[in-house]
Amino acid sequence: MTTVTETHEDTQEHGMSDAGYIKIAVILALITALEVSTYYVDFGPLFMPALLIMMVVKFVMVVSYFMHLKFDSKIFSFLFYTGLGLAIFVYCTFLATFKFFIA
């Protein structure tokens, strides 16, 4: 029972203050503004990698801080990232298969 109590209290005590959440939201808004700017400004060969990196950074920030995955049990991370990993695997296999057939 002690383990249960401690684990749950740990989960509640971790996380961030409201000011911390607002800071994260401001960073997310700035990254979004930067993403949108790629539509108007020519970033040349950096266009695609920059967009993908910004997308991944935003994704990780929301999942880690707003969804508390950074502060919660690793089991939650395992469940979520397994699903995400499988989805990426399916996506790659899907596209590779169609490319193969088209070729």
Binding site: F80, T82, L84, L86, A87
Partner: peptide, 9 residues
């Protein structure tokens, strides 16, 4: 949510 990743994937 993990299973939803597969749907949207």
């Amino acid at each position: 949510l993990g299973s939803e990743c597969l749907l949207f994937g």
